[in-house]
Nucleic acid binder design. Structure first.
Lengths: 237, 237
DNA sequence: GAGTGGTCTAGACCACCTG
DNA sequence: AGGTGGTCTAGACCACTCG
Protein backbone atom coordinates (compact mmCIF):
# COMPACT_ATOMS: atom_id res chain seq x y z
CA UNK A 1 0.00 0.00 0.00
CA UNK A 2 2.52 2.60 -1.14
CA UNK A 3 1.29 5.95 -2.33
CA UNK A 4 2.58 7.21 -5.66
CA UNK A 5 5.17 9.90 -5.16
CA UNK A 6 3.13 12.65 -6.78
CA UNK A 7 0.29 11.88 -4.36
CA UNK A 8 2.71 12.03 -1.45
CA UNK A 9 3.81 15.45 -2.62
CA UNK A 10 0.19 16.49 -3.06
CA UNK A 11 -0.70 15.52 0.51
CA UNK A 12 2.44 17.06 1.89
CA UNK A 13 1.73 20.37 0.22
CA UNK A 14 -1.91 20.30 1.25
CA UNK A 15 -1.00 19.69 4.88
CA UNK A 16 1.51 22.51 4.74
CA UNK A 17 -1.09 24.87 3.34
CA UNK A 18 -3.73 23.85 5.88
CA UNK A 19 -1.28 24.19 8.76
CA UNK A 20 -0.36 27.68 7.66
CA UNK A 21 3.23 26.80 6.71
CA UNK A 22 2.53 28.48 3.38
CA UNK A 23 0.57 31.62 4.10
CA UNK A 24 -2.46 32.66 2.15
CA UNK A 25 -1.41 34.72 -0.84
CA UNK A 26 2.21 33.55 -0.75
CA UNK A 27 3.92 31.50 -3.42
CA UNK A 28 4.67 27.79 -3.32
CA UNK A 29 8.20 26.77 -4.32
CA UNK A 30 8.54 26.72 -8.09
CA UNK A 31 7.97 23.55 -10.05
CA UNK A 32 11.67 23.20 -10.74
CA UNK A 33 12.49 23.65 -7.06
CA UNK A 34 9.96 21.06 -5.96
CA UNK A 35 11.20 18.78 -8.70
CA UNK A 36 14.78 19.04 -7.42
CA UNK A 37 13.86 18.86 -3.72
CA UNK A 38 11.77 15.75 -4.03
CA UNK A 39 13.81 14.19 -6.79
CA UNK A 40 10.91 13.64 -9.13
CA UNK A 41 10.30 15.01 -12.60
CA UNK A 42 8.40 18.16 -13.32
CA UNK A 43 5.63 16.12 -14.92
CA UNK A 44 4.92 14.53 -11.53
CA UNK A 45 5.22 17.84 -9.69
CA UNK A 46 2.69 19.28 -12.10
CA UNK A 47 0.34 16.38 -11.46
CA UNK A 48 0.43 17.15 -7.72
CA UNK A 49 -0.07 20.87 -8.34
CA UNK A 50 -2.94 20.25 -10.73
CA UNK A 51 -4.75 18.33 -8.03
CA UNK A 52 -4.18 21.16 -5.55
CA UNK A 53 -5.42 23.65 -8.11
CA UNK A 54 -8.53 21.64 -8.79
CA UNK A 55 -9.26 21.43 -5.07
CA UNK A 56 -8.97 25.18 -4.84
CA UNK A 57 -5.87 25.34 -2.66
CA UNK A 58 -3.70 27.15 -5.19
CA UNK A 59 -3.98 29.23 -8.32
CA UNK A 60 -1.20 29.03 -10.90
CA UNK A 61 -0.04 32.01 -12.89
CA UNK A 62 2.29 31.76 -15.79
CA UNK A 63 5.46 33.74 -15.20
CA UNK A 64 4.54 34.21 -11.55
CA UNK A 65 4.09 31.00 -9.60
CA UNK A 66 1.60 28.97 -7.63
CA UNK A 67 -0.35 31.23 -5.30
CA UNK A 68 -1.86 29.85 -2.12
CA UNK A 69 -5.58 30.65 -2.13
CA UNK A 70 -7.77 31.91 0.64
CA UNK A 71 -9.29 28.81 2.12
CA UNK A 72 -12.95 28.30 1.55
CA UNK A 73 -15.11 26.24 3.85
CA UNK A 74 -15.66 22.64 2.76
CA UNK A 75 -16.89 22.70 -0.82
CA UNK A 76 -17.55 26.41 -0.60
CA UNK A 77 -21.00 25.43 0.32
CA UNK A 78 -22.56 27.26 3.10
CA UNK A 79 -22.33 30.90 3.91
CA UNK A 80 -24.68 33.63 4.87
CA UNK A 81 -25.03 36.64 2.68
CA UNK A 82 -26.56 39.72 4.06
CA UNK A 83 -28.20 41.84 1.40
CA UNK A 84 -26.13 44.71 2.62
CA UNK A 85 -23.04 42.71 1.72
CA UNK A 86 -24.25 42.57 -1.84
CA UNK A 87 -24.37 46.33 -1.76
CA UNK A 88 -20.75 46.43 -0.72
CA UNK A 89 -21.23 47.35 2.89
CA UNK A 90 -19.32 46.17 5.91
CA UNK A 91 -18.89 42.66 7.23
CA UNK A 92 -21.17 41.02 9.69
CA UNK A 93 -20.14 39.48 12.97
CA UNK A 94 -20.89 35.78 12.87
CA UNK A 95 -20.87 33.62 15.97
CA UNK A 96 -21.67 30.03 16.68
CA UNK A 97 -22.74 28.44 19.94
CA UNK A 98 -23.41 24.90 21.10
CA UNK A 99 -26.88 24.18 22.39
CA UNK A 100 -25.49 21.08 24.04
CA UNK A 101 -22.10 19.43 24.41
CA UNK A 102 -21.52 17.02 21.51
CA UNK A 103 -22.66 13.66 22.84
CA UNK A 104 -23.09 10.05 21.77
CA UNK A 105 -26.66 8.79 21.41
CA UNK A 106 -28.69 6.33 19.41
CA UNK A 107 -30.22 7.36 16.09
CA UNK A 108 -33.73 8.75 16.06
CA UNK A 109 -36.20 6.11 14.89
CA UNK A 110 -37.49 8.25 12.05
CA UNK A 111 -34.11 9.55 10.92
CA UNK A 112 -34.32 11.49 7.68
CA UNK A 113 -31.96 9.34 5.64
CA UNK A 114 -31.79 5.58 5.41
CA UNK A 115 -28.94 4.19 7.48
CA UNK A 116 -26.82 1.12 6.92
CA UNK A 117 -26.80 -1.64 9.51
CA UNK A 118 -23.32 -0.74 10.71
CA UNK A 119 -24.32 2.90 11.10
CA UNK A 120 -27.40 1.82 13.06
CA UNK A 121 -25.35 -0.32 15.41
CA UNK A 122 -22.64 2.28 15.95
CA UNK A 123 -25.03 4.95 17.13
CA UNK A 124 -24.26 8.59 16.49
CA UNK A 125 -22.70 11.68 17.89
CA UNK A 126 -25.08 14.60 17.93
CA UNK A 127 -24.01 18.20 17.63
CA UNK A 128 -26.46 21.03 18.08
CA UNK A 129 -25.37 24.48 17.08
CA UNK A 130 -27.01 27.85 16.76
CA UNK A 131 -25.39 30.42 14.52
CA UNK A 132 -25.93 34.12 14.83
CA UNK A 133 -25.17 37.02 12.56
CA UNK A 134 -25.14 40.42 14.18
CA UNK A 135 -26.57 38.76 17.30
CA UNK A 136 -29.61 37.57 15.37
CA UNK A 137 -30.09 33.79 15.39
CA UNK A 138 -30.14 32.77 11.74
CA UNK A 139 -29.30 29.08 11.62
CA UNK A 140 -30.08 26.09 13.77
CA UNK A 141 -28.00 23.09 12.81
CA UNK A 142 -28.15 19.48 13.94
CA UNK A 143 -25.22 17.37 12.82
CA UNK A 144 -25.04 13.60 13.18
CA UNK A 145 -21.84 11.58 12.87
CA UNK A 146 -21.87 7.78 12.91
CA UNK A 147 -19.80 6.73 15.92
CA UNK A 148 -17.37 4.70 13.81
CA UNK A 149 -13.60 5.07 13.87
CA UNK A 150 -13.61 8.56 15.30
CA UNK A 151 -12.21 7.68 18.75
CA UNK A 152 -12.62 10.21 21.54
CA UNK A 153 -14.40 12.65 19.27
CA UNK A 154 -16.24 14.36 22.08
CA UNK A 155 -13.01 15.07 23.95
CA UNK A 156 -11.18 16.68 21.03
CA UNK A 157 -10.65 20.36 20.70
CA UNK A 158 -12.27 21.98 17.70
CA UNK A 159 -9.93 23.37 15.09
CA UNK A 160 -10.61 26.98 14.19
CA UNK A 161 -14.20 26.43 15.22
CA UNK A 162 -14.81 24.19 12.26
CA UNK A 163 -16.10 20.64 12.40
CA UNK A 164 -14.64 19.82 9.01
CA UNK A 165 -11.19 21.14 9.85
CA UNK A 166 -11.31 19.14 13.07
CA UNK A 167 -12.21 15.95 11.25
CA UNK A 168 -9.34 16.45 8.86
CA UNK A 169 -6.91 17.30 11.61
CA UNK A 170 -7.59 14.31 13.85
CA UNK A 171 -8.89 11.67 11.45
CA UNK A 172 -7.77 12.79 7.95
CA UNK A 173 -11.46 12.77 7.11
CA UNK A 174 -12.37 14.93 4.13
CA UNK A 175 -15.72 15.94 2.69
CA UNK A 176 -15.96 14.99 -0.96
CA UNK A 177 -19.56 15.70 -1.87
CA UNK A 178 -22.94 16.76 -0.60
CA UNK A 179 -26.41 15.57 -1.39
CA UNK A 180 -29.02 17.94 -0.05
CA UNK A 181 -32.74 18.53 -0.09
CA UNK A 182 -34.02 22.04 0.40
CA UNK A 183 -37.51 23.08 1.38
CA UNK A 184 -39.46 26.03 2.65
CA UNK A 185 -41.43 25.27 5.79
CA UNK A 186 -43.72 27.09 8.14
CA UNK A 187 -41.91 27.51 11.47
CA UNK A 188 -43.10 25.21 14.23
CA UNK A 189 -43.32 26.36 17.82
CA UNK A 190 -39.83 25.24 18.84
CA UNK A 191 -37.88 26.65 15.93
CA UNK A 192 -39.98 29.82 15.94
CA UNK A 193 -38.87 30.35 19.52
CA UNK A 194 -35.20 29.86 18.70
CA UNK A 195 -35.45 32.46 15.97
CA UNK A 196 -37.72 34.83 17.89
CA UNK A 197 -40.29 34.54 15.10
CA UNK A 198 -44.02 33.96 14.94
CA UNK A 199 -45.19 30.44 14.29
CA UNK A 200 -45.88 29.87 10.63
CA UNK A 201 -43.16 32.22 9.39
CA UNK A 202 -41.44 30.78 6.31
CA UNK A 203 -38.25 28.98 7.29
CA UNK A 204 -35.65 27.38 5.08
CA UNK A 205 -34.87 23.76 5.84
CA UNK A 206 -32.05 21.63 4.45
CA UNK A 207 -31.33 17.95 4.86
CA UNK A 208 -27.76 17.09 4.02
CA UNK A 209 -25.79 13.94 3.51
CA UNK A 210 -22.05 14.53 3.20
CA UNK A 211 -19.85 11.97 1.47
CA UNK A 212 -16.27 11.60 2.67
CA UNK A 213 -12.97 10.11 1.58
CA UNK A 214 -13.79 7.10 3.77
CA UNK A 215 -15.92 4.68 1.81
CA UNK A 216 -19.37 4.34 3.36
CA UNK A 217 -18.77 7.00 5.96
CA UNK A 218 -21.36 9.76 5.76
CA UNK A 219 -22.20 12.76 7.88
CA UNK A 220 -25.77 13.95 8.21
CA UNK A 221 -27.13 17.35 8.96
CA UNK A 222 -30.47 19.04 9.39
CA UNK A 223 -30.53 22.83 9.16
CA UNK A 224 -33.16 25.44 9.81
CA UNK A 225 -32.51 28.94 8.56
CA UNK A 226 -34.20 32.23 9.15
CA UNK A 227 -33.79 33.93 5.79
CA UNK A 228 -35.80 37.01 6.61
CA UNK A 229 -32.75 39.26 6.60
CA UNK A 230 -29.96 37.05 5.29
CA UNK A 231 -30.06 34.63 2.39
CA UNK A 232 -28.14 31.39 2.26
CA UNK A 233 -25.39 31.85 -0.28
CA UNK A 234 -23.69 29.00 -2.06
CA UNK A 235 -21.05 29.14 -4.73
CA UNK A 236 -20.61 26.04 -6.78
CA UNK A 237 -17.80 25.39 -9.20
CA UNK B 1 -4.62 32.35 -31.08
CA UNK B 2 -3.84 28.69 -31.59
CA UNK B 3 -5.18 26.17 -29.15
CA UNK B 4 -2.74 23.70 -27.61
CA UNK B 5 -3.11 20.30 -29.20
CA UNK B 6 -4.27 18.59 -26.03
CA UNK B 7 -7.05 21.16 -25.72
CA UNK B 8 -8.04 20.55 -29.31
CA UNK B 9 -8.29 16.85 -28.55
CA UNK B 10 -10.25 17.61 -25.39
CA UNK B 11 -12.81 19.68 -27.30
CA UNK B 12 -13.01 17.19 -30.12
CA UNK B 13 -13.74 14.33 -27.75
CA UNK B 14 -16.24 16.40 -25.79
CA UNK B 15 -18.14 17.31 -28.95
CA UNK B 16 -18.16 13.68 -30.02
CA UNK B 17 -19.56 12.61 -26.66
CA UNK B 18 -22.22 15.34 -26.64
CA UNK B 19 -23.27 14.54 -30.21
CA UNK B 20 -23.68 10.90 -29.33
CA UNK B 21 -20.80 9.72 -31.52
CA UNK B 22 -19.54 7.85 -28.47
CA UNK B 23 -22.54 6.31 -26.79
CA UNK B 24 -23.11 6.45 -23.06
CA UNK B 25 -21.43 3.49 -21.43
CA UNK B 26 -19.15 2.76 -24.38
CA UNK B 27 -15.39 3.05 -24.37
CA UNK B 28 -13.30 5.84 -25.84
CA UNK B 29 -10.35 4.76 -28.00
CA UNK B 30 -7.41 3.77 -25.81
CA UNK B 31 -4.74 6.28 -24.87
CA UNK B 32 -2.25 4.63 -27.20
CA UNK B 33 -4.73 4.71 -30.06
CA UNK B 34 -5.53 8.37 -29.55
CA UNK B 35 -1.84 9.07 -29.21
CA UNK B 36 -1.12 7.43 -32.58
CA UNK B 37 -4.17 8.87 -34.35
CA UNK B 38 -3.49 12.46 -33.35
CA UNK B 39 0.29 12.16 -33.42
CA UNK B 40 0.80 13.46 -29.91
CA UNK B 41 2.35 11.78 -26.91
CA UNK B 42 0.42 9.87 -24.32
CA UNK B 43 1.21 12.56 -21.76
CA UNK B 44 -0.85 15.02 -23.81
CA UNK B 45 -3.63 12.50 -24.44
CA UNK B 46 -3.82 11.94 -20.70
CA UNK B 47 -4.04 15.68 -20.10
CA UNK B 48 -7.07 15.83 -22.39
CA UNK B 49 -8.67 12.80 -20.77
CA UNK B 50 -8.05 14.14 -17.27
CA UNK B 51 -9.98 17.26 -18.16
CA UNK B 52 -12.85 15.18 -19.52
CA UNK B 53 -12.81 13.08 -16.38
CA UNK B 54 -12.85 16.13 -14.18
CA UNK B 55 -15.82 17.51 -16.09
CA UNK B 56 -17.65 14.25 -15.56
CA UNK B 57 -17.80 13.13 -19.18
CA UNK B 58 -15.77 9.97 -18.72
CA UNK B 59 -14.62 7.61 -15.98
CA UNK B 60 -11.29 5.85 -16.39
CA UNK B 61 -10.72 2.28 -15.25
CA UNK B 62 -7.31 0.72 -15.12
CA UNK B 63 -7.12 -2.33 -17.33
CA UNK B 64 -10.44 -1.46 -18.93
CA UNK B 65 -10.55 1.91 -20.62
CA UNK B 66 -12.26 5.31 -20.55
CA UNK B 67 -15.99 4.88 -20.13
CA UNK B 68 -18.38 7.52 -21.40
CA UNK B 69 -20.58 8.64 -18.50
CA UNK B 70 -24.27 9.36 -18.40
CA UNK B 71 -24.58 13.07 -18.96
CA UNK B 72 -25.63 15.10 -16.01
CA UNK B 73 -27.36 18.45 -16.27
CA UNK B 74 -25.11 21.49 -15.97
CA UNK B 75 -23.17 21.19 -12.73
CA UNK B 76 -25.58 18.55 -11.47
CA UNK B 77 -27.28 21.37 -9.81
CA UNK B 78 -30.96 21.43 -9.93
CA UNK B 79 -33.31 18.54 -9.68
CA UNK B 80 -36.51 17.81 -7.91
CA UNK B 81 -36.67 14.96 -5.48
CA UNK B 82 -39.99 13.60 -4.48
CA UNK B 83 -39.95 12.07 -1.05
CA UNK B 84 -41.35 8.93 -2.57
CA UNK B 85 -38.22 8.74 -4.68
CA UNK B 86 -36.17 8.61 -1.54
CA UNK B 87 -38.22 5.61 -0.53
CA UNK B 88 -37.29 3.92 -3.78
CA UNK B 89 -40.59 4.28 -5.57
CA UNK B 90 -41.27 5.03 -9.21
CA UNK B 91 -40.21 8.02 -11.29
CA UNK B 92 -42.18 11.18 -11.66
CA UNK B 93 -43.29 12.74 -14.91
CA UNK B 94 -41.64 16.12 -15.27
CA UNK B 95 -42.73 18.66 -17.83
CA UNK B 96 -41.73 22.20 -18.64
CA UNK B 97 -43.78 24.87 -20.38
CA UNK B 98 -43.10 28.41 -21.54
CA UNK B 99 -45.28 31.10 -20.06
CA UNK B 100 -44.22 33.35 -22.91
CA UNK B 101 -42.05 33.05 -25.99
CA UNK B 102 -38.44 34.00 -25.16
CA UNK B 103 -38.21 37.68 -26.02
CA UNK B 104 -35.79 40.59 -25.93
CA UNK B 105 -36.51 43.34 -23.42
CA UNK B 106 -34.74 45.89 -21.29
CA UNK B 107 -33.59 44.99 -17.78
CA UNK B 108 -35.92 45.63 -14.90
CA UNK B 109 -34.87 48.76 -13.02
CA UNK B 110 -34.53 46.94 -9.71
CA UNK B 111 -32.81 43.87 -11.10
CA UNK B 112 -31.60 41.55 -8.35
CA UNK B 113 -27.92 41.57 -9.29
CA UNK B 114 -25.72 44.50 -10.21
CA UNK B 115 -25.17 44.71 -13.94
CA UNK B 116 -22.20 46.01 -15.88
CA UNK B 117 -22.63 48.91 -18.26
CA UNK B 118 -22.35 46.69 -21.32
CA UNK B 119 -24.97 44.34 -19.94
CA UNK B 120 -27.25 47.29 -19.26
CA UNK B 121 -26.89 48.60 -22.79
CA UNK B 122 -27.37 45.23 -24.44
CA UNK B 123 -30.71 44.56 -22.81
CA UNK B 124 -31.78 41.03 -22.04
CA UNK B 125 -33.64 38.05 -23.31
CA UNK B 126 -36.28 36.89 -20.88
CA UNK B 127 -37.42 33.31 -20.57
CA UNK B 128 -40.36 32.39 -18.36
CA UNK B 129 -40.91 28.74 -17.65
CA UNK B 130 -43.19 26.74 -15.39
CA UNK B 131 -42.14 23.23 -14.45
CA UNK B 132 -44.53 20.57 -13.33
CA UNK B 133 -44.04 17.23 -11.68
CA UNK B 134 -46.97 14.83 -11.89
CA UNK B 135 -49.00 17.74 -13.29
CA UNK B 136 -48.40 19.78 -10.15
CA UNK B 137 -46.68 23.13 -10.77
CA UNK B 138 -43.55 23.06 -8.64
CA UNK B 139 -41.18 25.61 -10.12
CA UNK B 140 -41.54 29.01 -11.69
CA UNK B 141 -38.34 30.14 -13.34
CA UNK B 142 -37.35 33.46 -14.87
CA UNK B 143 -34.11 33.39 -16.79
CA UNK B 144 -32.32 36.48 -18.09
CA UNK B 145 -29.58 36.41 -20.71
CA UNK B 146 -27.67 39.54 -21.66
CA UNK B 147 -28.34 40.11 -25.35
CA UNK B 148 -24.63 40.00 -26.25
CA UNK B 149 -23.09 37.79 -28.93
CA UNK B 150 -25.93 35.31 -28.98
CA UNK B 151 -27.34 36.21 -32.42
CA UNK B 152 -30.83 35.04 -33.32
CA UNK B 153 -31.29 33.39 -29.96
CA UNK B 154 -35.05 33.64 -30.00
CA UNK B 155 -35.27 31.88 -33.37
CA UNK B 156 -33.15 28.88 -32.40
CA UNK B 157 -34.57 25.51 -31.65
CA UNK B 158 -34.00 24.22 -28.14
CA UNK B 159 -31.72 21.22 -27.83
CA UNK B 160 -33.24 18.37 -25.86
CA UNK B 161 -35.41 20.91 -24.07
CA UNK B 162 -32.39 22.30 -22.28
CA UNK B 163 -31.27 25.92 -22.31
CA UNK B 164 -27.71 24.99 -21.40
CA UNK B 165 -27.39 22.36 -24.10
CA UNK B 166 -28.74 24.88 -26.58
CA UNK B 167 -26.22 27.50 -25.54
CA UNK B 168 -23.40 25.03 -25.99
CA UNK B 169 -24.70 23.79 -29.31
CA UNK B 170 -25.09 27.18 -30.99
CA UNK B 171 -22.60 29.35 -29.14
CA UNK B 172 -20.14 26.99 -27.41
CA UNK B 173 -21.23 28.66 -24.21
CA UNK B 174 -20.65 26.59 -21.10
CA UNK B 175 -21.70 27.09 -17.50
CA UNK B 176 -18.69 27.05 -15.20
CA UNK B 177 -20.07 28.08 -11.83
CA UNK B 178 -23.10 29.26 -9.94
CA UNK B 179 -23.51 31.83 -7.22
CA UNK B 180 -26.91 31.57 -5.59
CA UNK B 181 -28.92 33.01 -2.74
CA UNK B 182 -31.66 30.94 -1.24
CA UNK B 183 -34.53 32.16 0.91
CA UNK B 184 -37.87 31.06 2.24
CA UNK B 185 -40.66 33.50 1.44
CA UNK B 186 -44.38 33.78 2.04
CA UNK B 187 -46.14 33.37 -1.29
CA UNK B 188 -47.47 36.56 -2.83
CA UNK B 189 -50.77 36.66 -4.70
CA UNK B 190 -49.28 36.03 -8.13
CA UNK B 191 -47.01 33.13 -7.30
CA UNK B 192 -49.62 31.62 -5.00
CA UNK B 193 -51.95 31.53 -7.97
CA UNK B 194 -49.42 29.82 -10.22
CA UNK B 195 -48.91 27.13 -7.63
CA UNK B 196 -52.57 26.85 -6.61
CA UNK B 197 -51.61 27.69 -3.05
CA UNK B 198 -52.92 30.06 -0.41
CA UNK B 199 -51.18 33.37 -0.03
CA UNK B 200 -48.58 33.25 2.70
CA UNK B 201 -47.64 29.62 2.14
CA UNK B 202 -43.87 29.13 2.52
CA UNK B 203 -42.18 29.20 -0.88
CA UNK B 204 -38.55 28.61 -1.72
CA UNK B 205 -36.87 31.34 -3.69
CA UNK B 206 -33.46 31.29 -5.38
CA UNK B 207 -31.53 34.04 -7.10
CA UNK B 208 -28.81 32.67 -9.34
CA UNK B 209 -25.90 34.09 -11.23
CA UNK B 210 -24.27 31.62 -13.58
CA UNK B 211 -20.68 32.14 -14.70
CA UNK B 212 -19.68 30.92 -18.15
CA UNK B 213 -16.60 30.16 -20.19
CA UNK B 214 -16.98 33.63 -21.75
CA UNK B 215 -15.31 36.19 -19.54
CA UNK B 216 -17.84 38.63 -18.15
CA UNK B 217 -20.81 36.81 -19.61
CA UNK B 218 -23.30 35.84 -16.91
CA UNK B 219 -26.77 34.36 -16.94
CA UNK B 220 -29.27 35.30 -14.28
CA UNK B 221 -32.19 33.41 -12.92
CA UNK B 222 -34.94 33.85 -10.37
CA UNK B 223 -36.75 30.73 -9.21
CA UNK B 224 -39.80 30.12 -7.08
CA UNK B 225 -40.41 26.60 -5.86
CA UNK B 226 -43.30 24.95 -4.16
CA UNK B 227 -41.60 22.49 -1.86
CA UNK B 228 -44.70 21.20 -0.16
CA UNK B 229 -44.44 17.78 -1.78
CA UNK B 230 -41.06 17.81 -3.49
CA UNK B 231 -37.78 19.10 -2.16
CA UNK B 232 -35.11 20.72 -4.29
CA UNK B 233 -32.28 18.28 -4.51
CA UNK B 234 -28.72 19.25 -5.32
CA UNK B 235 -25.66 17.09 -5.49
CA UNK B 236 -22.36 18.87 -5.29
CA UNK B 237 -18.97 17.33 -5.93
C1' DG C 1 -0.90 -12.96 -22.63
C1' DA C 2 -2.38 -8.88 -24.76
C1' DG C 3 -4.14 -4.53 -23.91
C1' DT C 4 -5.58 -0.97 -20.77
C1' DG C 5 -4.76 2.92 -17.71
C1' DG C 6 -1.26 4.48 -13.74
C1' DT C 7 3.24 6.01 -12.58
C1' DC C 8 7.59 7.97 -13.91
C1' DT C 9 11.99 9.73 -16.29
C1' DA C 10 14.96 13.34 -18.72
C1' DG C 11 14.99 16.14 -21.47
C1' DA C 12 13.11 20.47 -24.83
C1' DC C 13 11.12 24.98 -26.34
C1' DC C 14 7.64 28.61 -25.60
C1' DA C 15 4.78 32.44 -23.33
C1' DC C 16 4.53 35.29 -19.68
C1' DC C 17 5.90 38.24 -15.69
C1' DT C 18 9.08 40.84 -13.00
C1' DG C 19 13.43 42.94 -11.96
C1' DA D 1 17.64 38.58 -18.68
C1' DG D 2 16.28 35.17 -15.72
C1' DG D 3 12.76 32.59 -13.68
C1' DT D 4 8.03 31.02 -13.85
C1' DG D 5 4.37 28.05 -15.49
C1' DG D 6 2.51 25.99 -20.23
C1' DT D 7 3.16 22.80 -23.85
C1' DC D 8 5.33 18.79 -25.73
C1' DT D 9 8.41 14.61 -26.95
C1' DA D 10 9.90 9.54 -26.68
C1' DG D 11 10.56 6.48 -24.29
C1' DA D 12 10.01 2.97 -19.71
C1' DC D 13 7.92 -0.27 -16.24
C1' DC D 14 3.90 -1.48 -13.36
C1' DA D 15 -1.02 -2.89 -11.94
C1' DC D 16 -5.09 -4.18 -13.47
C1' DT D 17 -8.90 -6.50 -16.46
C1' DC D 18 -10.39 -9.68 -19.59
C1' DG D 19 -10.65 -13.45 -22.70
Amino acid sequence: MKLPRYKQLHQRLKSDILSGHYAEGSLLPSENTLSAQHKITRVMVRQALSALEQEGYIARRQGKGSIVCAQQPALGLLSFRGFSEVLGETEHSATSQFLSKPHATTWSKDFFFDLSVSEQKAGCITIERLRKVDDQPVMLEFTYLPNLNIPNFCDKKWVQGSLFRMLYWYYQLEITNVDQRIRALAAEAETAEQFHLDMGTPILHIHRKYGTNRPNYFIYSSLYCNTEHYAIGTIIK
